[in-house]
Write a protein that binds this DNA or RNA. Structure first.
Lengths: 323, 323
DNA sequence: TTGAAAGCGCTAACAC
DNA sequence: GTGTTAGCGCTTTCAA
């Protein structure tokens, strides 16, 4: 078995509680004793067992991070930032992938609750009701989803969508299409509402679609049928797929149709035409969400919505409307 | 506080040990008692506290998964598969990102050891010696790294590199360059050895480089200086960056220089020219590694190397050597 | 088949 | 400043 607090106590000739204090309440122990204990501990290779500690303190020093699909390029920067920030605060993070399935999402949360101090729920597919039920068990911070009374970090997609549509109408496009995301996606709904509010152009809604390249490719026919010359896609992957689907049908981007994505993933900078996109501050969101979560773990404070700005990055996939 | 085993015991009129058995040793308890207990537990919303269980059983039912950089597109499919497989076996996984830093890697492993039953170390940057020391504390499975006597899942990069080089020499290229990865990368070393073994062509080694698009772009000058007409890059990101860097210098791919990447990431299929690449079975590696790890957790069996095949995917970034 | 009791590694009153 | 004691939620002998 590994070396425990008791081994250290014996080897340094003090009681276990002194060893415990040497680690978790240094000011309560004689500096000399402390250094001696720490030296012995180091010597023996002692490391406190966090799970055991959690049992008495009620703090696991673990966080849960739940995403719909790790391999969606939108998430890794968020996960990375969240993980780094958690580490800074001496927290570890469980990462779980729900495969876009609300049931899995719920199960995952339930198995995690007891082992974490809080969970970060990113773009959840769960219903508001389910989320409200689950929050009884464990503190949450939501990312890109609003549920009244819950702490939330939102990237302002509505404004981003507005920016994108403004860009398109500014280029003379009068018939637009919004290629939507999966059912239940909050960002997709936000985008729809923002699009519906436009008075400058007609907007056709095409979807729901898989949030993938395939989803975008499959939407090409619908886009063509709509007669739109300017398109805002649910995300960059969908946008890239759409551009490919359009190209296969002999339609040029941006010559015939302008396309805008959302997320600013790496691939969007690499493809030709380089994708015009609404950039999401994912890393910042991850960092801030962790801080909020830790804050709410400590104080149980009720909290509101943190809005993060999105920006439009104009590249090559948008241009003047054809006439 | 949450509902504990004691609440369930009280509410169902049995002793806590009976409740415990109802969950973890069903065959030791009267079927009727069991159903009653489970019903009550369900009613109360009881969920066993895994951390507390771990304290007595010595099994946390958690795994650690350590990668150099989550936002490197190579890793997400591996993480996703590992995570799904772990879930299947009723395990949760801690994901940690070392930011390519060996020190961080070691610290991370040390803080994780007590909370996990085993760790998956992917493309570690640690020295063999450090890894061997750490293995005293916790079972490991390595991915893409060989350390004698340790369980390993390797994707056969050497063979993949051989395939790539064969493809290049087959197209008439006689001066090749290998754009290597970061110092300490096992795959990079494997590739170098495979390349050095070629008798069909001269191979220049250019590196070490950051395993990123920027790294590839920065290597363009070196590649040009080497006079090579065929290049194998450390990974797709580097390859894509290299193609861009070359283009900026007026060099055409594949007209003037052929470029091959490694990994088969999404972006490689999306860019033009579409990238010829050595595909890595990352998802399979994640799945298999988890199974091996769980196996070694149960049986402490010594284990060897599992080799996974790589394949060459020829697309548009390679062509006949110019003369 | 069930209960009683000890203990996993640690922290947190409470004494001294 | 340090030791004593109890107990976190659970499993696991040992008896009955």
């Amino acid at each position: 078995m590994a070396v425990t607090i008791r081994d250290v106590a014996r080897a340094s000739g003090v009681h276990v509680s002194t060893v415990s204090r040497a680690f978790s309440a240094p000011h309560l122990v004689n500096p000399e004793t402390r250094t001696r204990v720490l030296a012995v501990a180091d010597d023996l290779g002692y490391r406190p067992n966090r799970a055991a500690r959690a049992l008495t303190t009620g703090r696991t020093h673990n966080l849960g991070l739940i995403v719909a699909d790790i391999s969606n390029p939108f998430f890794p920067p968020l996960i990375k930032a969240a993980q780094a920030q958690a580490r800074l605060r001496d927290y570890q993070v469980f990462v779980a992938d729900t495969d876009e399935d609300p049931k899995v999402e719920e199960e995952l949360i339930q198995t995690l609750t007891k082992q974490v101090d809080g969970v970060l729920l990113c773009s959840p597919r769960l219903t508001n009701k389910a989320i409200e039920r689950l929050r009884e068990d464990v503190p949450f911070v939501l990312v890109n989803r609003r549920v009244t009374g819950m702490a939330t970090v939102c990237m302002d997609v509505a404004r981003g969508a507005g920016l994108a549509i403004g860009h398109l109408t500014g280029l003379g496009h009068r018939r637009l299409a919004l290629v939507t995301g999966p059912r239940g996606s909050w960002t997709s709904k936000e985008m729809q509402e923002a699009a519906a509010a436009t008075s400058e152009a007609d907007v056709a809604f095409i979807g729901p679609n898989q949030p993938t390249e395939q989803g975008g490719r499959a939407a090409a026919a619908g886009v063509l049928a709509s007669g739109a010359t300017g398109v805002l896609a649910y995300n960059d992957l969908v946008a890239i797929g759409l551009v490919e689907g359009l190209a296969e049908r002999g339609v040029d981007v941006p010559g015939d149709i302008s396309v805008i994505g959302v997320d600013d993933i790496l691939a969007g900078r690499l493809v030709r035409p380089r994708l015009t996109t609404v950039a999401m501050p994912t890393a910042a969101a991850g960092r801030i969400a962790v801080d909020l979560l830790l804050q709410s773990v400590d104080s149980r404070a009720a909290m509101g919505v943190t809005m993060l700005e999105t920006t439009l990055i104009v590249r090559e996939s948008t241009g003047e409307a054809p006439r």
